[in-house]
């Protein structure tokens, strides 16, 4: 891993490059740790790139900056994509990514607020990020009347099996949290198989619209599409925005793509080498 960090940019080619760098980081972190989740983090690279390198207001030199936008990673098992984005944005040294899941590391198996600067909330047990994001957004919009700050969260699609998510969906709809933008990583897999076999999610657009959300359905592996959706969500102030980010699990690593068995396991050293070669081969549009 080289130590290159990246500033915010609106250049699509640069953003696509950052997403590929994040993917390579993820593969190396997981192979070094010999433990962790592969498919979800790889598929989410464009979402984290869009947030940390384009749309979100934040300051890596001052993680507690009071004027910052907030990001809650609700699907905490995708920690490697968050850790890589934070390191590449400059929150901590890139070399520290190699300590993932090691005893004494700040990069805990699932992210912990106490452990690492830039992590807004501890997560791992699924279904509670949306509620926390909604609580923060409610304070900004309806109690403190702050108009120019936004609150983001990402969830896995399997994660929304959790009842807590739908409690939060009702809450955000009721309080019309126009400053809340959520993304579901719609990659159609979870540990036990395809989401539609485990517990069918079927028409997510209709579900979220019925909870009074503004819903966008996009190609979640197209970084420009993610940015445009987020910007549209920021402009829609009458309702919370749900971005259904349709992604390919394991994106960029052909032997992992679309395969649910890669949800919860890391590549071996030789598989990692193969994966890194594949990632070098192509920049995702």
């Amino acid at each position: 891993m080289d130590e290159t960090t990246y500033a915010r940019t609106d250049d699509t080619a640069e953003l696509s490059h950052i997403a590929q760098v994040i993917r390579a980081d993820i593969v190396q972190m997981l192979a070094t740790a010999a433990s962790g989740h592969s498919a979800g983090p790889l598929g989410m690279a464009e979402q984290l790139t869009a947030l940390y390198f384009n749309t979100m207001r934040h300051d890596p030199a001052n993680p507690a900056w009071p004027e910052r936008d907030l990001f809650f990673l609700s699907n905490g098992h995708t920690a490697p994509v968050l850790y890589s984005a934070l390191a590449r944005a400059g929150y901590f040294p890139v070399s520290e990514l190699g300590t993932l899941r090691r005893l004494g590391s700040r990069l805990q198996g699932h992210p912990e607020r106490d452990a690492l600067p830039g992590v807004e909330s501890t997560s791992g047990p699924l279904g509670s990020g949306l509620s926390q994001a909604a609580g923060y957004a409610h304070v900004l919009q309806n109690i403190d009347h702050v108009k120019n700050r936004f609150v983001y969260t990402t969830m896995g699609d399997g994660e929304i099996d959790e009842g807590n998510v739908w409690e939060a969906a009702m809450f955000a709809g009721k309080y019309r949290l126009g400053n809340l933008i959520a993304l579901i990583d719609r990659n159609n897999i979870q540990i036990d198989g395809a989401t539609e076999d485990v517990m069918p999610l079927t028409n997510l657009r209709a579900k979220w619209e019925s909870f009074d959300w503004h819903v966008l359905d996009i190609d979640g592996n197209n970084v420009r599409a993610v940015i445009e959706a987020i910007n549209l969500g920021k402009a829609v102030t009458w309702a919370p925005t749900m971005i259904l980010a349709n992604t390919v699990p394991g994106k960029g690593v052909p032997f992992m793509e679309y395969d649910h068995t890669w949800h919860g396991k890391p590549p071996s050293p030789s598989q990692a080498e193969q994966a890194l070669n594949a990632l070098k081969g192509g920049v995702v549009a």
Binding site: S121, G127, Q132, A134, G135, V139, N164, E167, A168, F171
Partner: peptide, 28 residues
């Protein structure tokens, strides 16, 4: 009234919304 939040019958959401509000500087 502006500092009161009715969550409906949803205790999991209530405490997690409260955690978010606490992160935003409140004492919920």
């Amino acid at each position: 009234p502006q500092r009161f939040v009715e969550t409906g019958i949803a205790e999991q959401n209530m405490v997690t919304v409260a955690a978010g509000m606490a992160h935003a500087g409140k004492i919920p």
